[in-house]
Simulated scan of single mutants.
Amino acid sequence: MSFTQPVTLTGELVALTPLSVDDVDGAAKAALDGRLWELTFTSVPRPEGMAAEIERRLDLHRQGRMLPFTIRRDGDQGEIVGMTTFMNVEEAHRRLEIGSTWLAASAQRTGINAEAKLLLLTHAFETLGCHAVEFRTHWLNHRSRQAIERLGAKLDGILRQHMVLPDGTVRDTAVYSIVAAEWAAVRAELRRRLARALPEPRSTEAAGAGHPATPHTPIDEEESA
C-alpha cells in the first residue's frame, strides 16, 4: 500500500476521512470554535482562508508528499472537528511525520485526539510498516511538547532557527519520534488513555433503579501540531 493512498480510519469517537474540497464549510466552522487562528504557536487558517489551505494540502497529496485527513466526530452526522496529515513522507525510508493537526476547542480534552493518534499510528506501523513516525512542534509550545511526550515519543533534537512564521518571528522546532520497537508500549498507553475517555456502560442494576451511569472524566490531553 502506498503511504499516500487515501484511506478512512474509524474508531469509536472519531473517523479520519480523506480530505476533500467539500469539507471547506465544515472545517471553517470548526476553526471558529475557539478562534483557532489566534493561537500563538499553531498555524490554523482563518475561515475565509480554509479553501486555500485545503487546496494546498490536496496539492501536496497530488505530489505524493502528504496524506491529508479530515477529523470527524463519530455521530453528529460526521461533524468536522479538525484536520491532520501524514506529511514529509519518505516511503523509501519507511518514515513519515504526523503533523499539520488542529482540533476545534470543543473537541479537545475529549479523547478525540488520543483516538486519532492511535488510528494514525496503527496505520503507520501496522499497515504501512513504518520504521519511525515523527512529530514536530514549536520549541516554545510547551503544551504541545508535553502532549507529544505523553504519547511516548522521544526528543530527537532541536532544529534551531528552523522556520520564519507569518508574524516574522523565527521558530526553533522540536523534533520527536516513535520507532517501531516502541510501538507496542505506545499503543498500550494510548488504549489505556482512550478507555478513560469512553463513556462507561450503564449497569443493569443502575438502569433498573433509575440511576445514571457514572460520568467519565475527560482525559488530560492537549492538541499537538
Rank of each mutant, 00 (worst) to 15 (best):
M1L: 12
P6A: 04
L9T: 06
T10F: 02
T10M: 07
T10I: 11
G11K: 11
E12W: 03
L13S: 07
T17C: 09
P18Q: 08
P18R: 09
L19P: 12
S20C: 12
V21H: 09
D23S: 08
V24Q: 04
A28C: 06
K29S: 01
A30P: 07
A30D: 05
D33P: 08
L36V: 04
W37T: 01
W37A: 00
S43Q: 10
V44L: 05
P47C: 09
A51H: 09
E55Q: 14
L58R: 07
D59S: 10
R62F: 02
R65V: 02
F69T: 03
T70S: 10
T70R: 07
D74H: 11
Q77I: 01
G82L: 09
G82H: 07
G82C: 05
F86G: 00
N88D: 11
V89F: 05
V89L: 03
E90A: 11
A92M: 13
R95M: 14
I98G: 01
T101Q: 08
A104F: 06
A105H: 09
N113C: 01
N113A: 00
A114Q: 03
A114V: 15
E115S: 01
E115I: 06
A116M: 15
A116D: 00
L118Y: 12
L121F: 11
H123F: 10
H123K: 08
A124Q: 10
A124N: 08
F125N: 08
C130I: 12
C130T: 13
C130F: 13
A132R: 15
A132F: 05
V133M: 09
F135K: 04
R136Y: 04
R136W: 06
L140V: 00
N141R: 04
R145S: 01
Q146H: 10
G152A: 06
G157L: 10
R160F: 04
Q161P: 00
Q161F: 04
L165R: 14
V170H: 04
T173Y: 14
Y176I: 05
I178H: 11
A180N: 15
A180Q: 15
A180Y: 14
A181V: 13
E182F: 13
W183C: 03
L190R: 07
R193P: 02
R196M: 11
L198H: 06
P199Q: 13
E200Y: 08
R202N: 03
S203I: 13
E205K: 14
A206K: 15
A206I: 10
A213C: 11
T217N: 05
T217K: 14
I219R: 10
D220G: 03
